[in-house]
């Protein structure tokens, strides 16, 4: 028995050592790439340390779209300011997820004057976006991130931690590369009712469930508290969509106005209309983004 236990123990230690080594080298391999906020959605790959930025953006893919391709530079030139975008696309950026990144941002000694929270109404009715096991697959392994993940109240946090670690061995991580394309040229040809219905089913897995909405409101409150405790001025933005208003739009808007008086709330649901400005039903292409950034800037300046 002793011989067996020693051999098994030695094997496990050897395996863990090899895994640790592989993770270390994968980290070096990926880090050698030139990542910027505009060409990756791996936030820890680009997050500054001890920096001050003018704008910090949080949200789901609609927030991330402010940085994708050349949109990041467009934003900074329109606003004439620096911006860090921590929003997450690919259905990975829930409110808890964004709170996790916000805490990381502050714990790394960063500061921001303005926090733009791109609050797509679907985010307030969908708890699944925080449940994804692959939430951190694009992030380098950091012990402090693991600690923050464990601190989260999320039911799936242990799964997410496990996947966070093991993702560093998978080909997705090793092959992570900057997306250096500069434009979204695609154009939405027509509003497709069936595709929209399908999309809404994914974006609202429980429909307009009140309980989910209430839970998300509580999570949002925690995020707002963290931001304001660190001196950020908050702006809520409901992003534009080719179809205009998202389901649940009224409830979200009413909640923001009631719960957060005195904060900027910009309802841009119908700010950019016309299929030519979108590459799908709710993501602006580069032409659309040019038009929208001017509107966003105008809205923020005007409210000031």
């Amino acid at each position: 028995m002793r011989r067996f236990l020693i051999k098994v123990g030695f094997f496990v230690i050897l395996w863990l050592f090899l895994i640790g080594t592989a993770i270390f080298f994968s980290h070096l391999w990926v880090k050698r790439q030139k990542f910027t906020n505009a060409n990756t959605e791996g936030n820890l790959l680009i997050m500054p340390k001890g920096n001050g930025v003018d704008y910090l953006v949080l949200g789901i893919s609609h927030g991330r779209n402010l940085s994708r391709r050349s949109h990041h530079q467009l934003f900074e030139s329109v606003f004439n300011a620096t911006m860090v975008n921590l929003a997450q696309g690919e259905s990975l950026g829930g409110i808890e997820n964004q709170h996790l990144y916000l805490r990381t941002f502050y714990e790394k000694g960063n500061k921001t004057n303005d926090l733009i929270l791109v609050l797509s109404p679907s985010l307030m009715f969908n708890a699944d976006t925080d449940q994804s096991d692959i939430m951190l697959y694009r992030e380098p392994l950091e012990l402090s991130m693991m600690r923050r993940l464990i601190d989260m109240g999320n039911d799936r946090k242990w799964h997410q931690l496990f996947f966070y670690i093991k993702s560093k061995l998978g080909h997705h991580w090793w092959m992570l590369k900057p997306d250096n394309k500069t434009h979204f040229d695609g154009v939405l040809t027509a509003i497709d009712g069936d595709a929209m219905k399908e999309g809404f089913q994914l974006a609202y897995p429980n429909g307009l469930d009140l309980k989910t909405f209430q839970n998300r409101c509580q999570e949002l409150n925690q995020l707002v508290n963290t931001a304001e405790a660190n001196g950020a001025k908050l702006t809520f933005v409901i992003p534009p969509a080719a179809f205009g208003y998202w389901p649940g739009h009224g409830a979200v808007l009413a909640h923001l106005k009631r719960q957060y008086p005195g904060r900027r709330v910009l309802d841009h649901s119908e700010a950019v209309m016309g299929n030519a400005f979108y590459y799908d039903h709710h993501h602006l292409n580069t032409e659309g983004m040019k038009k929208y950034l001017a509107l966003l800037y105008g809205g923020m300046v005007r409210k000031d």
Binding site: F11, L14, W15, I19, K166
Partner: peptide
């Protein structure tokens, strides 16, 4: 071989 398979199992 066992180390390789165990690692593939862990990853995939």
């Amino acid at each position: 071989l066992y180390l390789l398979l165990l690692t593939l199992w862990l990853v995939y």
